[in-house]
Design a binder for these strands. Structure first.
Lengths: 214, 214
DNA sequence: CTCGACGCTGTGAGGGTGCTGAGGACGACC
DNA sequence: GGTCGTCCTCAGCACCCTCACAGCGTCGAG
């Protein structure tokens, strides 16, 4: 847990220990970052307002270093954009103070349960980068303008780089299942994407689907 | 999305579609459960108060059947125990109505970031490797380009290394059963494969079929 | 050794698959 | 109402995969 208000920190620590968790407390941002890097923890409870390094920045750095530790963010700011920002920095959950201890516990359990490795907030494949939150794509640091369908298609492909994705799978996930769409639509949009991100980056696997070159 | 208030449902659907998501709506619990089981979705937004089957129960059943689809639960109940119950039933996140659309989106993105891509195993026989997901074959680390029929044939043979597989069995499994194909087609494709993966690796057992040398 | 059955392969027709430009439908914005 | 952007269908085209065919090679029984 990274929290600088010592009263809250020790109250929470005692509560969590009573539940059977092993808890360490760090009081500043840099300490917390260091602990997260080397401590081998299962999850982190992280305050936003911290001396030295904000919670936002801490998560961002952690994710940039490819640490996928589940993070529950705690903040006194309850604005919708504060919350969205925290999550888009890479936090997995966000709780506003004052919070219910029961809820904190339940959310922590939910976080530990899924435990599965998380993926980066910004997808990157080669020199392509896609930011789902900002809805932006850059190719070698140059912005690429995509329509929403093009964006959704690239998003799906970038989550599975190197894998072959079939046209039917793309139709199921990128297009609306309730509207019957011809598979040719996929071909058309692959064509649009190729013109924008580079022809060779999106390979055709005849009879099977498409593959984003890793 | 499983939501019985049609106004909210269609507003959300439109919003999410504008973001590039493919969205289906179910209005009752049983419908939602069914869709979650078979729809191949990436995530589910689930109201708690539903006709037929409550959201709690829906998640519980889903998890009992080992479906690990990420679930974002939506509820008008903001009591701390309601929230904790929802999460402990197996939901991954919980949002109380009224909620901010921005926050919903951010939380949805956080959920989608994780996903369990558990890659299917890579088949290996000798120095041959075949990756079904990437649809890629290497021979001593050198990539081998195969057509889709060749690939399907090698795939089938590599799942049964050392066994003798008859031509009729190959016709049944690698070729379309509805189209009558001459057994000679198998011989032709075995020939193609041999040229690409090495002549000695694919033995002929006269009168019985073919065997992939283990 | 002889012969027939089985398996291999070069050739070429056909057809399936994917790509593209054109254009209509629809909605947002001015 | 006009204009623009986006989505998607359509039709034409090019390419290469697929497979039947036929001739030849190979194997094994007698």
């Amino acid at each position: 847990m990274v929290e600088d208000e010592s009263r809250l920190a020790s109250a929470l620590q005692r509560g969590l220990q009573a539940e059977g968790f092993a808890v360490d407390v760090a009081a500043t941002g840099p300490e917390g970052l260091d602990a997260a890097r080397h401590g081998g923890y299962d999850a982190m409870i992280l305050d936003v307002m911290l001396p030295g390094l904000s919670g936002y920045e801490l998560v961002r750095r952690l994710r940039a270093e490819e640490h996928w530790l589940p993070v529950l963010m705690l903040s006194a700011k309850d604005g919708e954009y504060d919350q969205a920002d925290g999550l888009d920095c890479g936090a997995d959950d966000y709780l506003t103070k004052p919070f219910s201890y029961v809820v904190l516990l339940a959310r922590l359990r939910a976080l530990l349960r899924r435990g599965a490795p998380e993926r980066p907030t910004v997808l990157a494949v080669g020199d392509l980068r896609l930011d789902p939150a900002r809805r932006r794509v850059t190719r070698a640091d140059a912005e690429v303008a995509l329509t929403s369908r093009e964006f959704a298609l690239l998003d799906y492909l970038m989550r599975r780089p190197g894998e072959v994705v079939s046209k039917t799978e793309l139709l199921d996930h990128v297009w609306d299942a309730s509207v019957e769409t011809a598979p040719n639509a996929v071909e058309v949009y692959v064509g649009y994407l190729r013109r924008k991100i580079g022809r060779e980056r999106l390979e055709t696997v005849r009879g099977a689907g498409y593959r984003l070159a890793p």
